[in-house]
């Protein structure tokens, strides 16, 4: 049986140490993984996925990610 209260306290301690740099790095890594997964599964990036990341009100893409990264991913997808 898990000690949920103790785990919650551990979670709060870890969360308080989460920095914006760490979060941004994780987001970049996660999006690369999601794009790669879709390319592997479907052979291309769907317009809807790109559109979701580019226009979603819930997602703010860091500038370096939205320009170079996406351009690279789109080129890779088109070449595939």
């Amino acid at each position: 049986m898990l000690d949920y209260k103790k785990l919650y306290e551990e979670f709060q301690s870890r969360l308080s140490k989460l920095t914006v740099e760490e979060l941004d790095n994780w987001v970049k890594k996660d999006r690369v993984r999601i794009f790669q997964e879709q390319i592997q599964e479907e052979g291309k990036l769907s317009g809807s996925l790109l559109s979701e990341y580019l226009t979603s009100p819930y997602v703010e893409i860091p500038e370096d990610l939205s320009s170079d990264f996406l351009a690279g991913e789109i080129n890779y997808a088109m070449a595939a």
Binding site: L7, E10, F11, L18, V20, W26, D30
Partner: peptide, 24 residues
């Protein structure tokens, strides 16, 4: 931190940064 993520992203973050390191 002036960032917004989808709920799916939040759960992926939780899995990698919290659940697994906490032994869940």
């Amino acid at each position: 931190l002036n960032r917004k993520l989808t709920l799916q992203e939040v759960h992926r973050l939780l899995k990698e940064k919290f659940w697994e390191p906490m032994g869940i």
